[in-house]
Nucleic acid binder design. Structure first.
Lengths: 372, 372
DNA sequence: GAGGCTCATGAATCAGATC
DNA sequence: AGATCTGATTCATGAGCCT
């Protein structure tokens, strides 16, 4: 039997629960620096949701339109500043955040993120395959929403599963525009009356991509505007822990029922395509020490334009240049850098073979008998 | 013979000219309420640190021009507030503005527009068919830019040629995401040395669509960051008057030569993306993200000789071979290649169904909202 | 001419471990 | 903390050249 290893503070985190209350208060009550990722779908529309954290419910006269508008933007900014500050406090140093919005609010959110020192990594466009048309023909069909992906600080070592996303996209880099359908059909949750349970339920496919991209299994994902719990449902499927915060009890109930039905995917299915960067380093000297190449043996560049001789200490000498396989390759090519492993080749049975083959052999021997 | 009807103040406007100087000063010197549309491509405030090299070691020609340097967000905001205020003063009551930017600046611009009482009508995503890749594999390919379209005031009777855009889009409503290639080839202006004349020249197709959408023939279009004059060139083609403002004399000269060559209604301005394209490529990962197949589910080869398991990133694992549906199929068959879409099947109600059915479903959804 | 191949390049906030 | 070293990393398109 294995025990899941957790950071100490994680023991006090209310994992895989939906918390009631105001998200700012709740976030401020949780331990700082304890969350890997935050996914947030804050209220969008200033005009329709003007009661947002607003002390008075008085309706402003139409004459004062301009002032009201300015005033409600200011209120919205204040709200945004508060919940983003709380979110930043909760994140681990290498944590990151996603926020989704539309043109009604995303500029306020983006500017506030930047003002608070978050570092924007990408803005991502969710391009809807089946948006609601513009019925009156007065504007363009509003066919997308915008997500901002930002690390907690500039220079943070954020998580990005590049190879997994490339695999999801048939072998080419994932772009900043994601084409996905809106949430309809069976996936769309209904209330007792058969109406949609939440007005802006996000599709699981969107969360699937965001979580595969920027978390690893076992990570803690917090959603301060949990709604009907799409973030929690996908996190559970993918073997991530979640924390949901939702003010409305009706939504919490729907989300709880929903998530209880979700099953985690088989953990072998959750292994994703890994990065070469994660593989152990092999010093070229080991190739010489193990006798896979002999001192004095000659290596050839791609196309055999250059050659160099192996020395006993694992350095090369070629054209009076001495140094590592990388340094000599770079010097001969006049390039700023060079990956010597893929650049140099040796002769076996009259054929040119990349020295990277030797590195792979060493790695295979290293991993023998080791759990993976 | 017809005489072009003009508003009185238009007589004093420097129509179809490129003005030198700082755009804020120049705009403030022009008569208020005299311009129908402003198209602005302000500095993006890219914050680039060191050099960037491609995997082939070539150096990326970055935008390091002095006009894109700002010492802080606060300085950039101040600049934005000044030029947008000047722009608002210049607009007719029913005038509108377009601003283009990236995540580096667009949130600042959007928030300032809203703060100054502009009314956002749409944010439009320019999805680039051929963006520069992310060379280090550290983020998503930055494959789009964002345009904001806003009227001068809330409630303004702005111009929107709904039917013209619908026609441009093969009879369905134009969406808020526009798929257009970046500016290359003959359209890309070169200097005497044969290098690009301007680092950020916009494609004429983008301006064509914006001007068709939001102006009428004879309208006055002002561009305060004229650069090499794409806005002026397209305005002239389409029979609109333009006013360009550009600080750099070198750019003004290039723009003047360019626009002199342009003829009104030149058919080369026609949309190049309206043509029919091959069926869109569907990454297998989308089948997984959309929940059409679950991670852990088993796929079977034709005749069920082999099976493989679906993983969360859209790769398969079968007989210890990991990779795309195509790679795993080929490996199991010992074949050089394999079309995974027709090779693999899944079980539904006891029957074997080809996964190609799922691809067809996704394509059907994609074509519901046409990409152009 | 057609077709194929190589090469160049585009608004980019693009590394991480070890010494 | 700063310097040094290893070594991972690209897609679409047009121009130019060759067969």
């Amino acid at each position: 039997m294995t025990t899941k290893t957790k950071a100490p503070e994680a023991a006090t985190l209310p994992l895989n629960q939906i918390l009631g209350g105001d998200c700012i208060d709740v976030m401020n009550s949780l331990p700082a620096g304890s969350v890997d990722l935050i996914f947030a779908d804050p209220p969008y529309n200033l005009q329709l949701k003007g009661d947002l954290h607003r002390p008075d419910n008085s309706k402003v006269d139409a004459v004062d339109d301009h002032w009201d508008q300015f005033s409600s933007f200011a209120k919205y900014d204040q709200f945004t500043q508060l919940w983003l500050a709380a979110a930043k406090r909760l994140l681990k140093p290498n944590g990151a955040i996603w926020v989704i919005g539309s043109y009604h609010n995303i500029f306020r959110v983006g500017a506030t993120l930047q003002d608070q020192g978050f570092w924007v990594l990408n803005d991502v466009v969710w391009r809807k395959t089946n948006p609601m048309p513009n019925f009156r023909g007065k504007r363009l069909t509003n066919a997308h929403e915008t997500l901002i992906w930002a690390s907690r600080d500039e220079g943070a070592k954020y998580t990005f599963n590049y190879e997994a996303l490339k695999a999801l996209n048939e072998g080419v880099q994932m772009r900043s525009d994601w084409v996905l359908p809106i949430c309809t059909g069976h996936e769309r949750l209904k209330d007792e009356a058969g109406d949609k349970a939440h007005p802006t339920q996000k599709p699981e496919s969107l969360l699937h991509r965001a979580l595969i991209a920027t978390t690893n299994p076992g990570d803690v994902v917090l959603d301060p505007f949990f709604g009907t719990g799409t973030t929690g449902a996908v996190a559970k499927m993918l073997g991530r822990d979640f924390i949901g915060i939702e003010r409305e009890e009706a939504y919490r109930k729907v989300a709880e029922r929903r998530i209880a039905k979700v099953r985690k995917f088989d953990s072998s299915a959750l292994e994703i395509t890994g990065s070469k960067r994660a593989e152990p380093r092999v010093p070229f000297g080991q190739v010489v020490e193990r006798g896979m190449l002999r001192p004095g043996e000659e290596l050839y560049s791609i196309g055999s334009r250059f050659k160099a001789k192996v020395r006993a200490d694992g350095t090369l000498i070629g054209n009076d240049v001495k140094g590592s396989i990388h340094q000599v390759g770079a010097a001969l090519e006049g390039a700023p850098s060079c990956n010597g492993w893929t650049y140099w080749h040796f002769k076996r049975d009259g054929k040119m073979v990349s020295i990277d083959i030797l590195r792979q052999q060493i790695r295979a021997e290293m991993s023998e008998g080791r759990p993976h």
